[in-house]
Every structure is written in C-alpha cells, then in structure tokens.
Amino acid sequence: VSKLITEALSVSQERVGMSLVALKKALAAAGYDVEKNNSRIKLSLKSLVNKGILVQTRGTGASGSFKLS
C-alpha cells in the first residue's frame, strides 16, 4: 500500500499535495480495493509521515493533504 501511495503522490501535480479523498480515488483507479482496505491506507499514511517520507500539509491524523518530502 505504501508503494502505491508514494507512486500516486509522485504523479500528482498539486503544489499543496493530494487530499485523502483524491488519494483514494487515485488508488481506486489503479485497481486497489479502497473500501475493503481503508484502515490499511490510513495506517500506511501515518507510518509514511512518521518515517519522514510524506509531509502532511493540512489536517490531522490520516485526514487532510499529503505530499512527498
């Protein structure tokens, strides 16, 4: 899941990052079952932020906008 998230964010052209909703849409378009794996998406977002791979530009927790650091 982390690999899919970083790939989706690297393609994004948004300056402020990608919102959680837009990220879920991009994952669904890539063929990932978002409804079934919603908790996995949130956990991997939090772990990527803690590792310093992603930066959360808006919001708290697993909601808001994210971009690559």
Rank of each mutant, 00 (worst) to 15 (best):
T6E: 09
V11M: 05
L27T: 01
I53L: 11
N38H: 03
A26L: 08
S47C: 14
D33C: 05
L45P: 02
A62K: 14
E35K: 14
A22N: 05
S69M: 07
T57R: 12
V34K: 09
S19V: 09
S63F: 12
S12F: 12
G31C: 05
G64Y: 11
F66A: 13
E7D: 09
G64K: 13
S44R: 07
L48S: 00
R15S: 10
G59W: 08
V49M: 14
L27G: 01
K24H: 01
K36R: 09
M18L: 10
K51D: 04
V1Q: 00
G59N: 07
G17I: 05
S19Y: 04
K3F: 01
F66V: 10
V49Q: 04
K3S: 05
V1N: 02
S44K: 14
N37E: 13
K25D: 07
S63L: 13
I53H: 10
T6S: 07
S10C: 03
R40A: 14
S69T: 12
T6W: 01
K25S: 06
G61H: 12
L20H: 02
G61D: 14
K42Y: 08
L54A: 05
L20Q: 02
K46N: 02
G17R: 12
K46P: 00
T60D: 15
K24I: 01
V55F: 09
M18T: 12
L43R: 14
L23Q: 00
Q13N: 06
G52D: 10
Q13K: 13
G61Y: 06
L23A: 03
K67N: 10
V1T: 04
E14D: 05
G59S: 09
T57F: 08
V1A: 09
V11C: 10
K24G: 02
F66R: 10
L20M: 12
M18N: 13
L68V: 06
S39D: 12
A8C: 08
R58H: 11
S10Y: 05
S10K: 07
S10H: 05
L45G: 02
K42S: 09
K3V: 03
L45A: 01
G52F: 07
G31T: 05
V16R: 01
G31F: 05
S65P: 10
I41L: 09
A22M: 09
L9K: 07
A62Q: 13
A28I: 11
S12G: 13
L20T: 04
K51I: 02
S69N: 11
L54Q: 14
